[in-house]
Structures are given as C-alpha cells and as structure tokens.
Computed example of a mutant assay.
Amino acid sequence: MMLSKQKKNQNVNHNQRRLLISINVLGSAGPIRFVVNEEELVEAVIGTTLKSYAREGRLPLLGSDNSAFFLYCPHLGSDAALSPWDKIGVHGARNFVLCKKPHATNETADDGSGNSTSGTSSIPRRGSSGSWKSWFNLNLKISSH
C-alpha cells in the first residue's frame, strides 16, 4: 500500500518543479519567502507576495492591486521589469525585488479663459524619478551611516 502512494506522489511531482523564492519589498524590512510552482505566472506571484505581506502585518501598507507593482530580478542585469505573463521559473532566478509602479501625474492648468489644458508638470516629484535601482541605492546610502 505504501508503494502505491509513493508512485502516485512521484507522478504528480515529476511534472511540477517547485522553487523557494525570496522577494524583497522596497521599503520593508527583510524578504518574503515562499514556495511556488516554476510554471506560476509573475502576476500570481505578485498577488501571493502582497497577501503574505499583509498577513504578516508589514509596513508600509501596500494594498492588494497586483497591477500597481513591478517584479524585478536584479541578477538578470536588466533594468526592465518581468512581464506579468512570464512564468516565474523561466529565468532560473530565485531572488526578486517588488516595487510600486510610479504614478503618472496629469495636471490640469487653467489658461484664464475658462479653458483647461492638460499636461504634465515640468517639476519632478520627489521620489518619482529614476528606476528602482536608483531608489534602492539611495536608501542604502542613507541607512548605512
């Protein structure tokens, strides 16, 4: 009887590789670690990360909107975020960085005639410039003294 259970488990696990991944959330202390199927989509991994983050009561509060976040893999050497439709195991990486997407601001200006024109502000907002790497490097410099 034990032999039949072992065979059944081997068949199920043979097709699915599982990975222990570590996700650092910018602005939070310590990574979140959990096991995922290598065929899991990046979007689902972001959702699982947000749920685990909230369950643990971490700060700052992030919310639960998967589409408001990017998942990066610093070991790939690319500054581009992973596509939400990629499989998490496709790059062979196990360490990732989760950060919030920058908010695009469209301000409305009144030209005095009652007509409003929309455009973007020429003054950069604090904390909205650059990539996640520049923000990460800035925080390391501040916290290392």
Rank of each mutant, 00 (worst) to 15 (best):
Q16M: 06
K5Q: 15
E40D: 06
K51M: 05
H91K: 11
T49N: 03
Y72T: 01
T49W: 04
S131P: 05
S118V: 15
E56Q: 14
L98H: 13
A54R: 13
S128K: 09
P102M: 01
H75A: 09
L61Y: 12
H103N: 02
G114M: 10
G77K: 15
Y53S: 06
L61W: 05
R125V: 03
N9A: 04
A109Y: 12
G119L: 10
C73F: 07
I21D: 06
C99T: 15
L41H: 08
A93E: 13
A104E: 06
H75E: 02
N139T: 11
N24Q: 13
M1I: 12
I21G: 03
N66W: 01
I23P: 01
Y72P: 02
R125W: 01
L20S: 02
N37Y: 12
S52G: 06
A81Y: 05
T120M: 11
D86N: 03
L41F: 03
S121Q: 01
L62F: 12
S4G: 02
P31I: 02
N15F: 09
G47P: 00
C73M: 06
S67C: 08
K133F: 09
L41D: 07
R126P: 01
S144W: 00
D110K: 00
L71C: 10
L3F: 10
G92I: 07
K8Y: 12
K8C: 04
R126G: 00
S28F: 08
V36Y: 08
E38V: 07
I21Q: 03
S144Q: 04
D110V: 01
Q10W: 04
G130V: 09
R55T: 13
L59D: 07
F96Y: 15
R33E: 10
L76Q: 15
G89H: 00
E43K: 00
K133N: 05
D79K: 14
E43L: 04
P74S: 14
I46N: 05
N13C: 10
G130F: 03
L26E: 09
G63C: 09
H103I: 08
E107F: 02
S52M: 04
T49K: 02
L98E: 15
A93S: 14
G119I: 04
N106W: 06
R125P: 09
